[in-house]
């Protein structure tokens, strides 16, 4: 069970959160201008990497806020949680609100 750092509430168990998929999938500004293939890419295609992954989580049994998490999909190690940017749809540029490095919980070998 993952331990996820909510930028507002601190480290909490995975069961307090819901997952929101890959972060940084910006809704096209003008969907009408897109071809069907481009629209499908936005709708359905995800990077699905084996490794570093930026993803959205919601602390829905807590503060109900959405935030970003950088997690490795193979090791499940969480690099950091971050507050989503308020400058636009790409949540990637959010400020680094919290990392798990100091907690000893999720860092690779705990030291």
């Amino acid at each position: 069970m993952l331990l996820i750092e909510c930028p507002w509430c601190g480290p909490r168990a995975e069961t307090e959160f819901s997952y929101g998929g890959e972060a940084g999938i910006a809704r096209p500004a003008d969907p009408d201008a897109l071809s069907d293939a481009e629209w499908a890419d936005y709708l359905f295609y995800r990077s699905n990497p084996k490794g570093a992954h930026r993803e959205l989580w919601n602390h829905d049994h807590g503060c109900r806020r959405w935030f970003g998490v950088e997690r490795d999909t193979a090791t499940y190690r969480i690099e950091r949680s971050y507050v989503l940017s308020h400058t636009g749809s790409d949540a990637a540029t959010g400020s680094d609100a919290a990392t798990n490095a100091g907690t000893g919980y999720s860092s690779g070998n705990g030291d």
Binding site: S18, G20, A23, A26, R27, L56, N58, D60, R64, R65, W66, L84, S85, H86, S89, A91
Partner: peptide, 14 residues
């Protein structure tokens, strides 16, 4: 409600 919140917070925070 969750779905609306997600749009609001992640896509349209403005």
């Amino acid at each position: 409600l969750s779905w609306m919140e997600k749009w609001l917070q992640t896509e349209w925070p403005e």
